[in-house]
Simulated assay, not measured.
Amino acid sequence: MNDLRRTRTLLALLVAAAIAACSGGAGEGDAPPGPPPLEDAAMGGPFELTSETGETVRDTDFAGQYRLIYFGYTFCPDVCPVDMQKLGQAMRALEERDADLAARVQPIFISVDPGRDTPEVLTEFTDSFHPRLLGLTGSPEVLADMVQRYGSYAEIPEGQNAEGYLVNHSNNVIMYGPEGEPLVNLDMSASPEDVAAEIDRWAS
């Protein structure tokens, strides 16, 4: 019950942060936007997952980099492909806007469906959207713990046909800082250029 309450609280915080980022962020050339919306959120933490190439990947591997973390699955019929297409476009816009900053931003797609999302499937999926989009996954137990700690939600229904089940999940792209600190829930309803500007805004 405490876990469920904590998850709901984090999701509510993410919604509030998204609203704040949309309404109160600074534009290009404006004064600094102030503290990031998720500055005090109890989110994130260490992890150990498997990459799309089969290698072990830890949170410490991204030290010094901004991380854009999304939980989803490749068999998602609509939401995940749309979000990853937008994220890929935003990364290209950021590369044009500030190539040095873009090189320090790592987009990460974490599959919560390890039964179907093999390394080969993950590679094909991520390569479709941006060459630097990294696919990760892990055991169901590890993923369940990480999803909760990172303020997201995912649930694979039991007893479903292995070929056709759907996964209920949140679709937040959360930006974390160089030390793994949560910064902002990116507004993925905005244009790719505006998403790139938002990344630039919160990168110190």
Rank of each mutant, 00 (worst) to 15 (best):
L133C: 05
P182G: 04
S128Q: 12
L10W: 03
P107I: 01
L4D: 12
A41V: 10
E124I: 11
E28D: 12
G180H: 03
F125A: 00
G115P: 05
Q160H: 06
S152G: 04
D61Y: 12
E179R: 14
M84Y: 07
E124F: 03
V184H: 04
L186G: 03
E39H: 13
M84F: 10
V167T: 03
R97C: 04
P46Y: 12
G45T: 09
G29V: 13
L186S: 01
D40R: 14
I199H: 02
P33Q: 03
G25N: 07
C76R: 00
S170H: 07
V184W: 05
P81G: 06
A18Q: 15
F109E: 01
D59W: 02
Q65C: 10
P37S: 07
V15H: 14
Q65M: 13
G138Q: 02
G24S: 14
R5G: 10
A103N: 04
P77D: 05
A26V: 08
R132E: 08
Y176M: 05
D200V: 09
Y176S: 01
V79L: 05
S139I: 09
M84Q: 04
P114H: 08
S152V: 04
E52Y: 06
N2T: 14
D145V: 07
F109I: 00
V142P: 02
P107F: 06
D117T: 07
S191P: 11
L13Q: 09
D30T: 09
G24K: 15
E96H: 13
N171S: 13
